[in-house]
Design a protein around this nucleic acid. Structure first.
Lengths: 325, 325
DNA sequence: TCAAAGACTTGAAACGATTCAGGAACTGGA
DNA sequence: TCCAGTTCCTGAATCGTTTCAAGTCTTTGA
């Protein structure tokens, strides 16, 4: 009936108990009699009680916040939206809120330090993981739980979710081999990211397994400006050209594909392209490209679960996911 | 030198002043002597003091949080990523954090009520605004500041950022008229969203102004499944077909364009398509479509500024932006 | 019958901030 | 000299929660 939010104190008044009794009863402490607990919990439910987050946070230091760190390179990649929707899914039904921490163009570590120094989250999720990742190192040193999208390779065991890029590359080569392709190029991710090496490994393993020839593409990667990729595909000398291309990014694949078309090369006829994709739209405009799905929403959902488990102190060994979706 | 975060108390000890003096000095209260203020502020800077958010929030009720509400329909639209990056930009340099509030599939009002009931934000941003929007009404009734992406039409004055869709439609018709097109269809947004009527208004005004004929498309809109739009474009009877199409969404435009191609109609030759677009990728795959840019990142940035101004009590009249970017 | 043990409950302190009602020291005027 | 007014500073209370030491009451065992 009162017009303010119920608090422990008001519940105590309603039930005629002490504040600390109410507090413990709500958390099902065995110290409190079974019946009292039920009575308090009922009263709380009826009053619509929700613990005041500021109170909890001030007293315990627990923020009930998971934070995802923005990367400047992710904008407009289509990755981010799905990823956040997934994290949001994964947090649903828990007491955790999701906060989005901005990047700093001048210092990639700044957001991470900020989170640690201000204690503004219980757990962190970040992507674009590198083999020797300073963020992972820093968070580990400071004991703040985190989960990464992608793996590290620095002798550090931590929760992660990773797409199995090695298998992707390997299976992509199988597909190309089945189509009779012989000279395959790899449009790889930027080399500083961990999954670059996974991808290359699968690629090299596949070349050997299927008896194919690798064709180097020079120093371009999936984050090279699209127009450059387009022109590369259009202008490549015909006698050195690959007849199959594996691409780790939809957008890059599409740009490359448009470039091929501009050179009069038809995908599915003169050349084949296999690409990872998270969206269905582009399979409409570029139906000739072979798309292998990658589900960023699931990545986000699983990472949310992982980081919560890590916050809860679960053993890291069970918090590492290698997925092929 | 101490290993814990500085607090008002530790600053008080360092400076030899009282806690309340320090508190006021940091906020430049005129009650405190000029010199004392400087001394305290210097000490705070040197110690790397940052106010504890939980403490502030508990005492004052101020959360220093702006929350953006997710919409289920926005996933994968490309809108959301840019939008959030923009909001994050707009919040940079302020004390505000950005939290992402999940949607509820069963009750669109649930997240809004949650925010109000738990007092978990100082301000709210939401999109997909409707003429008679229950979210706007509820937030107004409860006195929680908000800013909308899109306008309402319910006799309620509130901060908003809106793209000028009326002008977009009007100018799109001008473009089509200049290309010699006569029979123009509008692929409009879903009718429950406010900008549907703005778009229609511009469309009708343009038809009259340029002497064009409107061609109805039936009950489809920009959120109709892409395959349906594709098939619609492909299968439409030739003698009733429009020779120009205005489209309020890139993805819909592309699907429609692919459908046209499947029917052997060439954009730029048999028909022209004008569409809003926030991404440059699709202008590569569909260079024949005329793209009019819409900048969601700017929308987010401006909305962040607007909602902060609203929280600060600024007059609504200056917090309404109609943009043509 | 009494002490010890157990079962429940509780008030007070603490987390870090702001606000408010004073208090001390100084000024100026009569 | 004294009173009133300024200027500047401060302790205590408060926000809502958890934790801890201590309290009451009942039960048990000898």
């Amino acid at each position: 009936m009162s017009d303010k939010r119920p608090t422990l104190r008001s519940l105590a008044e309603i039930t005629g108990l002490g504040i600390s009794t109410v507090s413990q009863a709500l958390r099902d402490s065995p110290e409190i009699a079974e019946e009292t607990r039920r009575r308090v919990q009922l009263a709380a439910r009826q009053a619509g009680y929700r613990p005041n987050r500021a109170g909890v946070r001030l007293r315990t230091g627990k923020t009930n916040v998971v934070t995802v760190v923005l990367n400047p390179q992710d904008e407009g990649s289509g990755f981010f939206a799905d990823f956040v929707y997934g994290i949001s899914d994964g947090l649903a039904g828990t007491s955790y809120h999701l906060v989005v921490t901005p990047y700093s163009l001048t210092d990639p570590m700044a957001p991470i330090r900020y989170i640690v120094e201000t204690g503004s989250a219980d757990g962190v999720i970040f992507s674009r993981t590198q083999p020797d990742d300073p963020r992972a190192r820093y968070l580990t040193e400071h004991g703040l739980p985190f989960a990464t999208h992608g793996r590290t390779a620095m002798g550090l065991s931590h929760p992660y979710y990773d797409y199995d890029n090695e298998t992707f590359a390997f299976e992509a080569l199988r597909l190309l081999a089945e189509k009779g392709r012989k000279r395959i190029a790899l449009l790889a991710p930027p080399p500083q990211l961990t999954y670059y090496s996974h991808t290359c490994k699968g690629y090299e393993r596949g070349l050997a397994a299927f008896g194919l020839t690798g064709v180097p593409l020079g120093s371009v990667n999936t984050e090279t400006p699209l127009t450059v990729l387009h022109d590369l595909a259009r202008d490549v000398a015909h006698d050195h050209a690959p007849d199959g291309v594996i691409c780790c990014s939809v957008t890059a694949a599409v740009a490359y594909g448009v470039g091929l078309a501009a050179a009069g090369k038809e995908i599915g006829k003169h050349v084949d392209v296999v690409a990872k994709s998270s969206t269905r739209l582009l399979s409409m405009t570029s139906p000739q490209i072979t798309f292998v799905p990658e589900d960023f929403r699931k990545a986000g959902r699983d990472l949310a679960k992982l980081v919560i488990a890590a916050v809860g102190g679960e053993d890291v060994s069970g918090l590492q996911i290698l997925s092929n979706e």
